[in-house]
Computed example of a mutant assay.
Amino acid sequence: MKKILIILLIFLLLIAGGALAAFCLVKNMASPVSAEDDGTKVRIEIPSGMSVNGAASLLAENQLIRNEKIFYYAARYPQLKGFLYGKEAGQSAFVLRSGIYYVSPAMNIAEIQELLSSGQQEYIKVSLPEGLTISKIAAELEENRICNAADFIKVCKSPDFAAKNNISGESAEGFLFPDTYFLTAGMEAQTVAQLMVDNFFAKIKEIPALAQMNSADLFQTVTLASIVEREYRVEDEAPLIASVFKNRLRRNIGLYSCATVEYILTEIEGRPHPDRILIEDTKIDNPYNTYKWAGLPPGPISNPGLVALRASADTPKTNYYFFQVVDPAAGRHVFTTNFEEHIESHSLYTKKSGK
Rank of each mutant, 00 (worst) to 15 (best):
residue 152 F to K: 02
residue 264 I to H: 10
residue 318 T to V: 08
residue 58 L to E: 04
residue 107 M to I: 02
residue 203 K to N: 05
residue 157 K to N: 15
residue 178 P to Q: 10
residue 286 N to S: 13
residue 96 L to F: 04
residue 175 F to C: 07
residue 167 I to W: 08
residue 283 K to F: 05
residue 87 K to I: 08
residue 34 S to H: 08
residue 354 G to Y: 03
residue 273 H to R: 11
residue 142 E to G: 14
residue 132 L to V: 00
residue 335 F to S: 08
residue 100 I to G: 04
residue 207 I to E: 09
residue 299 G to C: 03
residue 113 Q to M: 13
residue 52 V to K: 12
residue 296 L to A: 02
residue 352 K to F: 13
residue 128 L to I: 15
residue 11 F to C: 13
residue 117 S to Y: 03
residue 13 L to A: 12
residue 177 F to Y: 15
residue 307 V to I: 13
residue 268 I to S: 07
residue 126 V to L: 14
residue 192 V to C: 07
residue 219 F to C: 03
residue 238 A to Y: 12
residue 158 S to D: 15
residue 35 A to I: 14
residue 294 A to K: 14
residue 158 S to Q: 11
residue 201 F to W: 08
residue 234 V to W: 03
residue 278 L to G: 07
residue 342 H to E: 01
residue 193 A to N: 07
residue 218 L to Q: 03
residue 319 N to I: 05
residue 1 M to Q: 13
residue 221 T to S: 10
residue 260 T to S: 15
residue 40 T to W: 04
residue 145 R to G: 01
residue 156 C to R: 02
residue 217 D to Y: 06
residue 42 V to H: 04
residue 128 L to K: 00
residue 157 K to W: 07
residue 85 Y to A: 07
residue 9 L to I: 07
residue 324 Q to T: 03
residue 37 D to M: 09
residue 103 V to R: 01
residue 61 E to W: 03
residue 292 K to N: 03
residue 232 Y to K: 09
residue 175 F to Q: 02
residue 43 R to S: 09
residue 351 K to L: 15
residue 165 N to I: 10
residue 88 E to I: 08
residue 117 S to T: 13
residue 179 D to E: 15
residue 181 Y to E: 09
residue 107 M to S: 13
residue 265 L to M: 12
residue 9 L to P: 00
residue 173 E to L: 01
residue 307 V to Y: 02
residue 213 M to W: 06
residue 58 L to T: 08
residue 87 K to A: 10
residue 311 A to C: 14
residue 345 S to M: 07
